[in-house]
Design a protein around this nucleic acid. Structure first.
Length: 221
DNA sequence: CCAGACGTTGTT
DNA sequence: GTCTGG
DNA sequence: CCAGACGTTGTT
DNA sequence: GTCTGG
């Protein structure tokens, strides 16, 4: 669940503006819009850092715990099973995520995203810091009605106005935000199987499937 | 006390 | 960061 | 998450 | 079947 995401905002400057964080020209060089971001990729997290209320920091998707990297952790158990929960919460800015339907070998990607283009989703994350910098995991929860049609888990989405509650609230305040998103938050768009391979990371990943590649979706009448 | 662990996903 | 095991 | 790989030998 | 890479 939530093993692929998008952040298509064209520029780092616009991303900083949307997030309400200071624009850092040095970090901007590391930014590129993402149409098919995968675990192990460099991404970005928002977290309280140093004396700054909110910083936008580069971080690798996949929290190192022992020898493993975890793209996701169940939100329901994070407070018990991930002992740094109370001390390393973060937000993961995306503007969509993928889930797959269909049989193995014929997977059909669904892009779940806000109706408004470039409207951000703030995913609930937990981050750590290792020898090679920051890394993070995305917390999951039960799906809302839209996502339930495809899968049985979805990422925890934090409402913009409650971002500080997630980042700076106590554990109970933060835990109360671990729940499915409202049913009307996301649009389910079936897209090209080009998105199946993480080697493809371009706007074509978000186009509708061609008839040739999606015979199962084709309407017969 | 210190050392070491700390987990999810989908699929059958 | 914090809990468990030795 | 899905796709793709999954290996050895000796020689430079 | 399982692990790695993207």
């Amino acid at each position: 669940m939530c093993g692929r995401a998008t952040l298509t905002v064209p520029s780092f400057e616009e991303l900083a503006r949307l997030l309400g964080v200071p624009y850092d020209a040095e970090l901007a060089a590391r930014y590129r819009p993402r149409f098919n971001m995968a675990p192990s990729d460099e991404h970005w997290i928002v977290a309280p850092f140093g004396s700054t209320a909110r910083s936008l920091l580069p971080a690798k998707w996949g929290l190192s715990i022992g020898p493993k990297r975890l793209p996701n952790v169940r939100g329901e158990h994070a407070h018990k099973q991930l002992k740094n929960f109370a001390h390393a919460r973060c937000l993961v800015p995306v503007d969509g995520f993928f889930e797959w339907s269909g049989d193995k070998g014929a997977r059909v990607p669904h892009w779940f995203h806000p109706a408004q283009p470039h409207s951000l989703l703030l995913l609930a994350g937990v981050y750590g810091e290792g020898p090679e910098g920051f890394d993070f995991t995305v917390l999951t929860t039960k799906p809302n009605a839209a996502v339930a049609k495809v899968h049985d888990r979805m990422p925890v989405v934090i409402p913009t106005e409650l971002a500080d509650q997630w980042l700076r609230g106590d554990q109970d305040e933060a835990l109360s935000l671990v729940k499915p998103a409202p049913d009307d938050l996301l649009v389910d768009t079936v897209v090209s199987t080009r998105a199946n391979s993480a080697r493809n990371d371009d706007p074509e990943c978000l186009l509708p499937p061609t008839d040739a590649e999606a015979p199962r979706q084709r309407k017969l009448f």
